[in-house]
Amino acid sequence: MSQTLDGSMKPLAEWAEVQDDRIAAAAVAYGVEETLDELLKTWMHQAFQADLSSDLKLWDLLFTLFEQENIHPEEGERRKLNVLEPEAKRAVAAYSYAELPLPFTAQLIQSGETETETRIIQSLQYIRTCFPED
């Protein structure tokens, strides 16, 4: 996951390339897969301007951009995420969709690891309660 930025954009793109599967999956969770190209350019520009230099900051900026798109898909499994609070949605999207490790997910939502695990479990159970027929 670690990636050192050397002050140019290329390593940022290389970092994104390494994270391609995870980014694409997270984009699906937020329904922004169609506009992901543009979002990634925006992300890279902002990350470059802000001189972000850690995985956590890069992912945080990415999720923030996804959340700002304010899309609530009504099809697929991801529609079920709409019943969650934004923070819980980010935790589930990071953990279940993007397969980010639990400790890293906890940092992304600025919470403790145990609390984050409990929150994800409860969120998944709540979704099952809301959508029992699936």
Partner: peptide, 10 residues
């Protein structure tokens, strides 16, 4: 669902 997402944007 995430695994079947369209890849390659990066």
């Amino acid at each position: 669902e995430g695994r079947f997402a369209k890849k390659g944007a990066a």
